[in-house]
Write a protein that binds this DNA or RNA. Structure first.
Lengths: 183, 183
DNA sequence: TCCCGAATAGAGTGATCGGTCTAATTCGAT
DNA sequence: ATCGAATTAGACCGATCACTCTATTCGGGA
């Protein structure tokens, strides 16, 4: 990989981390540049559309990372309830690790920009749908009809997103862990 | 009510509406002043702590409004599932009315500021807890033990919050309405 | 080695940010 | 009518915002 691509990747990773912790609008490009170590000239070279394109890439990356984790969990755990425990455990762990500062890598950026920014809206939809798709498979292979499996998957993913909000204000991972008990 | 108090109330209401639609950080004080019709001198008279205090007041107001609506629904609907249908119906209605632009009046502001801002974090916790409290009563009077009632209430509120995110990216109220089918 | 496009440096753009300050005005109680 | 406090007007602050632009440097294929 060329040195250039390293800078591009660092930009996206740093943006994702900062957007997650402090929101999209209140994260300045300068801070992203400083913390990523990427030169300023590169930002608009790789992302001519500017901050919005960076936000889109950050949401895409976050979506892919979470999806990858869910795929692993789906392989490791047979039953939906074990899968849900794994999912909630991972999210609760991330939340606690960050000192309850970093929530869902997708939610904040999406809530601040959907639907005004078509790119970020699309990236958020793709990300969430990809998570739901993985969860749907887990419910479906347990014997649930497709429709019901999908409903459960959406409820699970949605409930986890809501629990992340609750965990944030309560400074506790209990709300996230509790979600798993209903699946 | 004095003319002054009218300006203060307008400031909070306008802030709530704008924070909900476009986020906390990307809403400028100037825009809030313009749209509320309140004079700039008043803002720092009523909110010496500035934007953060305004955000706290906006979250408090939003929390109280939703809580009031939930109390009405709890009185009107006997069973938890009817209550859940009412809850989801109201939220889906608000979402659709706004053209899928305005989400939860609490979530966005909280995600952008918790836990950095103690005031907003506290206001968000109080708001969410008050909603959960109302829902818990509904489950409890249906015969569920207190602990189980509270778990269901947290799951319901959390799932609705997550569904609001899903609805936003999909431009559809279906995810919100679907939540009710599981309660 | 040469060369050309990709990548980088970094100053500079105007606009807007949240917040401060002082003086003028308005209001309610007496 | 008067007085003191509450409120308002609005200029002003430095900082930071996203973004642009040009000149320079760098790297890899011929």
């Amino acid at each position: 990989m060329s040195k250039a691509a390293v800078h591009k990747e660092n930009l996206v990773r740093t943006a994702m981390r900062l957007f997650r912790r402090q929101g999209y609008a209140s994260t300045g490009l300068q801070q992203i540049l400083d913390e990523s170590g990427a030169p300023k000239g590169s930002l608009y070279h790789y992302f001519p559309a500017g901050k919005e394109a960076l936000g889109e890439a950050a949401v895409e990356l976050a979506g892919a990372l979470v999806r990858q984790k869910l795929v692993e969990l789906a392989e490791r755990h047979e039953t939906p309830s074990a899968f849900a425990r794994g999912y909630c455990g991972v999210m609760a762990g991330w939340m606690a690790e960050s000192g309850f500062r970093s929530g869902c890598p997708v939610a904040t950026t999406v809530l601040e920009n959907a639907p005004q920014s078509p790119g970020i809206t699309r990236a958020g939809r793709v990300a969430l749908d990809s998570w739901i798709e993985v969860a749907t498979e887990v419910f479906a292979r347990d014997g649930l009809p497709r429709r019901k499996a999908r409903m459960n998957a959406e409820l699970l993913v949605g409930a986890v997103e809501g629990a992340l909000l609750l965990a944030r204000v309560r400074q506790s991972k209990q709300p996230i862990l509790d979600v798993a008990k209903s699946f």
